[in-house]
């Protein structure tokens, strides 16, 4: 589904954010990307739907080359859901309109159909009663669930999560993770940048560990939590798992 081949990316002339990264996410697979801050995990996931351009290598999404100048990027992006660390709901639109905007403007759905889809998804994330509210009237956890519903409204073939719980108060993390666990169990293809090792342990098929722009470890979940092969991954795990 997602193939990342020898991807290189620079910010400016001197800083290399991604160094020869190669990995893949198969259909229905859940892959967790972790690593210390500044290791390039967010950059990597943003390259998948070309929010960030790459300078070397290839990214292929459902058979379509993302970094081909001829690719219709808006169309390709509309088929991949993305959830951001800071939710990024559109503050001037009611929750229901946040879910309908791209359905109508990008997919060309009729307003009534878009509303039906939106309400079904809001119901699914437990926020049907909040449809008429504005984003600023919801808690962080609720906003992030809306953001997930907004991405799902486009019927995506895969979902990208960029630290979806990092900006949340501790008591709100689980309500967002619950939604994500459900999604994973239903067979959604997911690439998740997160520090939530509990989530990784529960639903991930594979775990990728990044450090300084490199993919240091790319292993099945059991192998990763059992005996990571690299020193750096071991150190990282011991630091975040000791609490």
């Amino acid at each position: 589904m997602i193939e990342i081949n020898h991807v290189n990316k620079w910010y400016g002339p001197s800083f290399q954010a991604l160094k020869d990264c190669t990995t893949s996410v198969a259909k229905g697979e859940v892959v967790v990307v972790c690593g210390p801050s500044g290791s390039g995990k967010s950059t990597l996931i943003k390259c998948v739907n070309a929010l960030e351009p790459i300078q070397g290598g290839d990214i292929i999404l459902d058979g379509i080359k993302v970094n081909d100048p001829k690719t219709d990027l808006p169309k390709l992006r509309s088929r991949v859901g993305m959830v951001f660390q800071h939710f990024e709901l559109f503050p001037h639109l009611r929750i229901i309109d946040n879910l309908c905007l791209a359905q109508e403007k990008v997919l060309g759905r009729k307003h009534d159909d878009a509303v039906v889809t939106a309400m079904k998804l809001l119901d699914r994330v437990g926020l049907k009663d909040h449809a008429k509210k504005f984003p600023a009237e919801l808690s962080g956890g609720q906003q992030q669930r809306v953001a997930i519903a907004r991405a799902l409204a486009m019927n995506p073939i895969a979902m990208l999560f960029d630290e979806p719980t990092s900006a949340l108060d501790p008591e709100m993390i689980s309500e967002v993770l619950d939604v994500m666990v459900d999604l994973a169990r239903e067979g959604m293809t997911m690439m998740v940048v997160t520090h939530e090792m509990g989530f990784a342990n529960k639903v991930a098929d594979r775990v990728i560990f990044m450090d300084r722009g490199e993919i240091v470890e790319d292993a099945k979940k059991a192998d990763f939590f059992g005996t990571p092969r690299s020193d750096r991954a071991q150190k990282f795990l011991s630091k975040i798992l000791q609490h």
């Binding site: 990024e88 559109f90 791209a102 403007k105």
Partner: peptide
């Protein structure tokens, strides 16, 4: 926030739509 543009781009909105609606 920079994420606003990224979020609407990620939803498949074109640049013109991103400015117009978001």
């Amino acid at each position: 926030p920079r994420g606003q543009k990224q979020a609407s781009t990620a939803l498949g909105l074109t640049t013109v739509q991103t400015y117009r609606y978001v």
